[in-house]
């Protein structure tokens, strides 16, 4: 039985309403995330094929910027690049393009060398498997300064590009936690006081299907989610399930959305970092969004996080 019926069944049992309308964001124009592969691109127009195989044409705004391992002009993205686009005007005007962007979050298993480049084998959780990552010599300084414990057992989180099956990281996504992945600090003692929203940092992950909207949440019951590493978090998060609807709000942009929990955020739960997008967020990564949802909530993929607030949707 699919988990997508869970929300409806739970609502029926508890007499809740099942409507899940996104939070109002007054004065904010809606953002649309569009994923696809570039067929053709010029300084003013991009034509791409979306995950359903349909062709989409978007006007590139004059102020638009792009990223392809480094900041670049949109027209310099080569045809065939997988892009994530932040668009306005009902998804017709592209203003930010990220080419071949990927994010690798996991536990370092092994390290090696390939010429001047470093190679890292990461365990990205039970359902995401093992990934091999190349840290190019040119990016190694930036990565190492934010990942001082470059040895097996420690966490790794970086953003880069994935082309021809090779992942090359370019930017650190966060400062590496000082503890080992198996030694996540316990959450602070819980108080009985009512807490309507839980604040922390929301990251993104590319463990979702192309163009999928959803969120990975760390505090799931292991038996229900078939994820042996779930249920670990350094923030006092309540238990939810795959299929639950989670409200995620971007504090920096005053945007919010109700998204389904579609994956187990076992890696997110191990990071006790803060996001400093707008002020300093409380400690702890409370959710991992799909790139599409992250972009639609106003997040910048290369920054890696935004200050978030979550609650049950």
């Amino acid at each position: 039985m699919g988990v997508e019926r869970r929300h409806a069944l739970a609502s029926a049992a508890l007499g809740r309403t099942t409507t899940t309308s996104p939070e109002e964001s007054p004065g904010q124009a809606a953002l649309t995330g569009i994923a696809g592969q570039i067929i053709d691109i010029s300084p003013h127009l991009v034509i791409l094929e979306n995950p359903d195989g349909e062709e989409e044409r978007l006007v590139i705004a004059p102020w638009a910027t792009a990223w392809h391992g480094r900041p670049t002009a949109p027209a310099e993205l080569p045809a065939g690049t997988r892009v994530m686009i932040r668009a306005r005007q009902s998804g017709r005007v592209a203003e930010r393009l990220w080419g071949d962007i990927t994010r690798v979050t996991g536990v370092i298993l092994a390290l090696g060398r390939d010429g001047r480049d470093l190679t890292v084998v990461l365990d990205c959780g039970p359902h995401r498997g093992t990934r091999n990552v190349v840290v190019p010599y040119g990016a190694s300084g930036r990565i190492r300064v934010r990942h001082p414990q470059f040895e097996p057992g420690f966490l790794f989180d970086a953003i880069g590009t994935r082309r021809d099956g090779v992942t090359r990281v370019a930017l650190p996504a966060t400062s590496q936690p000082t503890y080992r992945a198996a030694s996540v600090p316990s959450p602070p003692p819980a108080y009985r006081a009512v807490q309507s929203r839980i604040s922390g940092t929301a990251a993104w992950s590319d463990a979702f299907d192309d163009g999928e909207a959803g969120v990975a949440y760390p505090m799931l019951e292991r038996a229900d989610s078939e994820c042996e590493d779930a249920g670990v978090s350094c923030t006092g998060l309540p238990y939810l399930a795959l299929g639950s609807m989670l409200y995620v709000g971007n504090v920096c942009e005053s945007r919010g959305a109700v998204l389904p929990i579609v994956a187990c955020g076992c890696m997110a739960g191990r990071f006790c970092d803060r996001c400093v997008e707008c002020g300093t967020s409380p400690r702890g990564r409370i959710a991992e969004l799909s790139p599409l949802s992250f972009v639609e909530l106003g997040g910048e993929l290369t920054n890696g996080c935004f200050n978030a607030r979550v609650g049950l949707g």
Partner: peptide
């Protein structure tokens, strides 16, 4: 056929 937990239910 299915069981899951949400908050305190």
């Amino acid at each position: 056929v299915d069981t899951w937990r949400e908050l305190c239910w």
